[in-house]
Simulated assay, not measured.
Amino acid sequence: MRIVITAVGPDNVGLADPIIHYVTSLGANIAEIQMYDHDEEAVFAMLLRIELENARLDELQAAITRIGQQTNLSIRVWAPEARQNCPRLAICTTYRPEPALALLRAMRDGQIKAEPAVMIGNRDACRGLAEQFGVEWRNIGDDQGRADDDKMIDVLDEFEVDYVILARYMRVLPASSCWKYAGGRIINLHHGLLPSFPGIRPYHDAFSARMLTYGATCHFIVPELDAGNQIINQTTFTTPPGMKLDDIIRLGQEDNEPRCLAEGVRRVVDGEVQLHFHRVIAVGS
C-alpha cells in the first residue's frame, strides 16, 4: 500500500527523525522524501511517501498523530488506495460555475468515479450549484473575498477529503496549505496554456501575442515551484483570425476549461497518472 505522510510546523531540530524511525521500524520502504526548512518563517515541512505491506491505517494514523503532538507538527496520513474506488473530492470555487458543474455532472454520470464531499468558496457565487447537486457548501471568505486558509484546511480535514480541486478558485494557496495536502492531492485548473501563458490574464496575453490557438491546463499544485512540470492535461481550441477577445474568452470559459479539468481529474482518480518527486508520471510506464 502506498501511503503519504505530510508534516508542517515550527522549525526545530530532529523533527523528521521520529517519523522516519517509526515507519522504518514497521518495515516500510521509503519511496520519496522531501524536507524543507523555511528559515525566514521558521517553518518546517516534510513529505514522506512509503510503501508498506499489510498496513493498519488506523494504528499508523494514531501513532503518527502522537508523534505530531510531541513535536508540535501538523501531520496527515493519506493512502490513495484506501478509497481508490470512490475518492472524496473538495471542489473549490470563486466566481465561474462551469468547471465545478462539469465535475459534478461527470461524477453524477459515472465518468469520474469519485464523490463530491464538499464545495468550498471564498465567495458565494457557486453556492446554488452546490445546493442543486446536494453537496455540502462552506464559505471560507470574508466580505471582500479574502480566504481564511486555516479554515479551508479545517474543512478539508472535517470532510476527510482525498483530492482538492481548484476549479477556477481565484486565490493563491499558501505554501503551508500546499504542504499539508502535498503528494499529488491538489489539482488546479489554469485558464491558459502552461508554461507559455501563466499569470491571471492568459487569454489577454495570448490575444496580445496574436495567437489563434488558446487553451487550458490542469496541473498538480506543488509548493514553491513553477507549475510547468506538473501538467496532467491540456486542451486547446482554434479561433479564426479577427475573432473578438470577448468571444474567445466565452468559448474558453464555457467549453474548453470545463472539459480540460474534467479529463484531468478523471486521469488522477482512475490512477492513470501520479505525482512523484514533483513530476507527473504515467502509472505502470
Rank of each mutant, 00 (worst) to 15 (best):
R76Q: 09
Y22Q: 03
V155T: 05
M170C: 07
M211H: 08
P240N: 10
R88Y: 08
T93V: 15
L251R: 15
D162H: 10
N29T: 09
K151I: 02
R2H: 11
R105F: 00
S74K: 14
P80N: 09
T93Q: 03
A28R: 02
P10T: 08
D247L: 12
G27I: 00
L101N: 10
V161I: 15
G134P: 02
D143E: 15
A206C: 08
I281T: 04
P241A: 13
T213I: 14
G192E: 06
L73F: 02
G183N: 03
E32Y: 06
A125H: 13
A82H: 11
N54M: 06
L275E: 04
L15G: 04
R83L: 06
P241I: 02
V273Q: 09
H204P: 01
K113N: 12
L129S: 06
H276Q: 12
H191A: 15
Q34P: 01
D143A: 15
M119W: 10
L60F: 02
P99Y: 07
C86S: 14
E257T: 00
L26R: 14
I232V: 03
S196T: 00
D11Q: 09
D157Y: 04
Q274E: 11
L89Y: 08
A117F: 07
H219G: 06
I186F: 11
R108S: 09
R201W: 07
D150P: 00
Q132W: 04
F44Y: 14
N29Q: 12
A147M: 05
R108Y: 00
C92H: 00
G121T: 01
H190Q: 01
R2I: 01
E272N: 10
D157M: 02
L26T: 02
E263S: 04
P223I: 02
G134N: 02
N139G: 11
T238I: 05
E254W: 07
A125N: 12
L245F: 10
R171L: 01
A227C: 08
R49Q: 11
D58T: 02
V269M: 13
F277Q: 11
P202R: 08
T71H: 07
L156E: 08
T65C: 02
R49E: 13
G121R: 02
Y214Q: 00
M1G: 09
Y169F: 14
L275G: 04
R146N: 12
A100W: 04
G192K: 03
N256L: 10
I20Y: 12
D109F: 08
P10Y: 10
E41K: 13
I281K: 10
T236H: 09
L194E: 07
A82Q: 12
R105G: 00
Q34W: 13
A167E: 00
C218Q: 05
F207T: 04
G199H: 10
M170E: 07
G215Y: 03
V23W: 09
G128M: 05
I19D: 08
Y181Q: 08
D58L: 01
A114H: 11
V23P: 11
P258S: 02
N12R: 13
I165H: 12
L189V: 02
L73C: 00
D124T: 10
A102Q: 06
G199E: 09
L26I: 03
E263H: 05
R83W: 06
D157E: 13
G9F: 07
D37I: 01
Q230D: 03
F277R: 11
L225M: 12
G184M: 01
L57R: 07
A130F: 04
